[in-house]
């Protein structure tokens, strides 16, 4: 018999839009802590899709109630990508939290956010008085992230259509005209990219008053010191939060998928261990 019960379903937000969610329920040793996984956006969400499913299962096997969901405009949820932005994604996290609370009676919820989802987690934690969060491979610099999105479109146009002369300002012109651009197959629009650029990470980090785990990946040799960006993050967190930083060795990559890594054992163990040690 499986150690957990799981199911996937649609649930509805206040506007009547459907969201796709999956729940994972332990059959024994049930903890009073629940976990909501906040996914990355676009190609990164897809890139770690299976990894998040296996994380959810391992967390449930460890006794936690777990919930995953797709933002509107992505995956199996309502709508198209260009019609939704950062604000709607924050609303979707709230909808997921409500749905989770409606389904399961837990004392505490831990948010586990990946990449951009880690940034949204910071905001959602404040809005929902969540005490413990896990930020996995967070996007440290949103402006650079947006720039990379634009660059990826340029590279795709160059690689597929041979358009070698296309420049960033041309792409911004297209966006300003209300067109969307393909970023690894996801049609990104101006409101989404602008809201990302305006996302003030330092304020969010300073405003976080609770407990956090920041996880970063490395491939071969463990870095001797934290990266400059992560050090900066720690300085902001230092002001009000209690936090840990954990390196995780993995062959997983956010870029080209060269290795099939459906289960990130070290990541899953790191998260489970931290939640247990820092129990409420």
């Amino acid at each position: 018999m499986n150690k957990i019960l799981e199911d996937c379903f649609f649930f509805y937000n206040q506007q009547g839009h459907y969201l796709y969610g999956c729940s994972y329920i332990p059959r024994s040793d049930m903890s009073e802590t629940g976990i909501v996984i906040v996914p990355p956006v676009g190609h990164e969400r897809l890139r770690c899709y299976r990894e998040c499913v296996t994380l959810a299962r391992e967390l449930a096997e460890a006794g936690y109630f777990v919930f995953r969901f797709d933002y509107r405009g992505e995956g199996e949820s309502f709508g198209e990508f260009p019609d939704f932005d950062v604000k709607t994604r924050l609303e979707d996290i709230n909808s997921a939290l409500k749905e989770f609370s409606r389904r399961f009676l837990v004392h505490e919820i831990v948010l586990v956010g990946f990449r951009l989802g880690a940034l949204f987690t910071l905001k959602a934690a404040k809005a929902n008085a969540i005490k413990r969060i896990i930020l996995c491979e967070p996007v440290y610099n949103v402006k650079k992230y947006v720039k990379n999105c634009i660059r990826s479109n340029i590279i795709a146009q160059r690689d597929y259509f041979g358009k070698s002369s296309i420049k960033e300002d041309v792409i911004w012109d297209q966006l300003n005209k209300g067109e969307s651009i393909s970023v690894y197959g996801f049609q990104m629009s101006l409101p989404f990219l602008r809201q990302l650029q305006e996302f003030d990470i330092s304020s969010e980090l300073k405003a976080f008053h609770n407990i956090a785990l920041v996880i970063y990946f490395y491939k071969n040799k463990k870095p001797a010191a934290l990266s400059r960006q992560l050090t900066e993050w720690c300085e902001y967190l230092d002001e009000n939060a209690i936090y840990d930083v954990e390196p995780v060795k993995t062959r997983f990559s956010w870029t080209t998928k060269k290795i099939w890594t459906p289960i990130l054992f070290d990541l899953n163990n790191c998260i489970i261990k931290w939640i247990k040690i820092n129990g409420s």
């Binding site: 190609h43 897809l46 995956g75 990508f81 049609q187 998928k257 099939w260």
Partner: peptide, 11 residues
């Protein structure tokens, strides 16, 4: 088989 039911870009 290497992604999910929506495929790349949910296409």
């Amino acid at each position: 088989g290497v992604v999910a039911k929506g495929e790349i870009g949910d296409h």
